[in-house]
Design a protein around this nucleic acid. Structure first.
Lengths: 344, 344
DNA sequence: CGCTGTCATGATAGCGCTATCATTCTTTTT
DNA sequence: AAAAAGAATGATAGCGCTATCATGACAGCG
């Protein structure tokens, strides 16, 4: 099983790869018929199809998808661009996409922007070069060049995570409303000294949309809406460290509305370590509804976002569009749900 | 920004896509020179390069990577096949791969087998059809057809996660040794009634390799090594539910060696909810060193596996190989580390 | 001054597949 | 029975790019 390191030095003229032409010859048909037998079985007779499939087996033929894509100028590839792989939220969306798309024979070309819109542009350029059938990207915000590129692209574009008027298709939820929802809950519970804690809000702008909702509710009640921004991305560790920061800046804080469950759970566990009672000494709320939050004691109050569902729905809509069906609703609100725990 | 749903009905003869030939014409050079200016800048004069790049900008040219791959029979694609996306362990490996490969201009083609080796074979077939430059797959076990296909493939193959003699390159850790390590720790701590708890061990065979190590140590001490297998994949929920199961089957259990941290943390949190003292009533150990385990109280005793590091190292080795350098060490042991918490 | 070597560029010929149109043969329709 | 429609197959011509070999220009060298 030893490998020759000089892969690159292959003589293109003597490729040992089995081609469709060889399969066709072996099956006694023309290449184009063999192609049809594989890609459009309904177009050939049963006998032919069987012969071709037998030849494929016999020769161990592996279709060259690159050649097929070039000839047909479409590919069974779908580009998926996310801002982060650390954040399990995006991974769950990918999972939903993956399972639905793979079942339809599509492959995922994965890109990670690290919350950098210029990086997103580069990835989009590359992916368009692969003649992807469609592109899925997280968020409605893109840089100018990217926007222009996508606007002129004649394939479906699916923007996920947040809800709004996008380039083309959209599946997401209303983050401002989610922020309002949690803030209302806290206010209703009687909390007045409420701090919002987020991480890198310029990047994670959906978290700042939730803050907008949060602030609006608090202000409507005549309450201040202080915010503490962390410099590291959301994680248990950051959440745990944020407690000190919050109390240093806002000593009277009675409730913390965290931008996500990782932060919230980190803070909750940290609070317990230092003997604070949650929610009596400090109430804690999160966002996302990660399993973790449901397993800590007290159970975390959070907002459940249907992430895998979002991926699945996005994939289904794409498939509908790709199979030529008209798609009427271009925006899909997957909603969210307030998950009451004992942490507030 | 409205999209025409009839994407498929495009007239191939009148593609509006800018081609390299147009760029070349606009720059006043031949197509092949334009190609060189973009892919092999050192091969053309400074003036030419500038002219071509200017034309690219001017026309908004996006290279057709499909055509390029067909002509050169190689692509800047790397196939990555993992058994699961729910398990954050694989995602972290992907992340390590991703950041290293993307920096070198490679794209990741992602496949998920759901722990099904036949599915893996299908994915490999598809990915080979894309003329990927290399393939990364989790694990050393493949079905027969897959093995044959890969053995005849003349590109680098990287098998990650576990250590052993594989098809080609290998980066991983010794799971049997990891199992031994944790078992030794538990025995040294004085525990004798130790249960190993895993989930779907036929699928997650690395977990059963750890059990082998675990069992060997216990037997060497003349101790029984009972095992409890769960029917659901590892998760906090499964871990939490496993407690009852363990005590029902082995009432005297004093320590549980979980196959992973999700299970262990779930059990630990569940134990706390029901007022059990960890580790006095029940000791709990995990595997992976997820952040979660480091933030619960008591901190989880676990084995730290360098997952992102594994991805990065695998990517680096692949890049070395792809850039024509000889790779001497074909196996890389990334090791593991016993992380002592207060849960044992 | 011819000889070799290097550099920059170009002409040609595919890579392996499928869109398109053409052909043959069979079936259905009037 | 002739015409029209359909079913199955094939010949041709690319898809947009790059490997390969060829060319011309110019430097260094004995």
């Amino acid at each position: 099983m030893s490998k020759d390191p000089s892969h690159t030095a292959k003589n293109r003229r003597h490729s040992d790869q089995i081609t469709l032409t060889q399969v066709a010859k072996s099956a006694g048909v023309s290449p184009i018929t063999a192609s049809r037998a594989l890609n459009n079985p309904a177009k050939v007779s049963d006998t032919t199809r069987r012969n071709v499939l037998a030849a494929v087996e016999r020769l161990g033929y592996v279709p060259n998808l690159v050649a097929g894509s070039l000839a047909s100028s479409r590919s069974k590839l779908i580009a998926v661009i996310v801002p982060s792989l650390i954040n399990s939220v995006f991974v769950e969306v990918i999972k939903g996409l993956q399972e639905t798309l793979e079942a339809e024979g599509y492959q995922i070309l994965l890109g990670n922007t690290d919350y950098d819109l210029d990086r997103e542009y580069q990835l989009v350029r590359t992916f368009l070069g692969w003649s992807c059938s469609a592109l899925v990207t997280a968020g409605l915000r893109h840089n100018k060049a990217c926007h222009k590129l996508l606007a002129n692209w004649d394939h479906p574009i699916m923007e996920v995570m947040e809800l709004g008027k996008g380039m083309d298709l959209n599946v997401g939820l209303d983050h401002v409303a989610a922020g309002r929802c949690m803030a209302s809950h806290l206010v209703d519970k009687g909390y007045r000294d409420i701090v919002y804690v987020g991480a890198r809000l310029a990047q994670d702008y959906r978290a700042s949309m939730r803050y907008e909702g949060h602030k609006a509710v608090l202000q409507a009640h005549g309450i201040d809406a202080p915010i503490v921004e962390l410099d590291t991305l959301g994680s248990l560790k950051a959440g745990s460290e944020s407690l000190d920061l919050v109390f240093a800046q806002h000593p009277k804080t009675k409730a913390i509305h965290f931008a996500n469950d990782d932060l919230a759970a980190g803070a909750l566990l940290a609070a317990q370590r230092r003997g604070l009672n949650v929610p009596n000494d400090i109430a804690i709320a999160g966002f996302n509804g990660l399993p973790l939050g449901q397993h800590v004691t007290p159970q975390l109050t959070t907002i459940l976002s249907p992430r895998e569902e979002m991926g699945r729905l996005a994939a289904k809509e794409l498939i509908r569009r790709l199979s030529g069906k008209n798609v009427y609703r271009r925006q899909h609100d997957v909603g969210f749900k307030l998950q009451l725990g004992e942490s507030t």
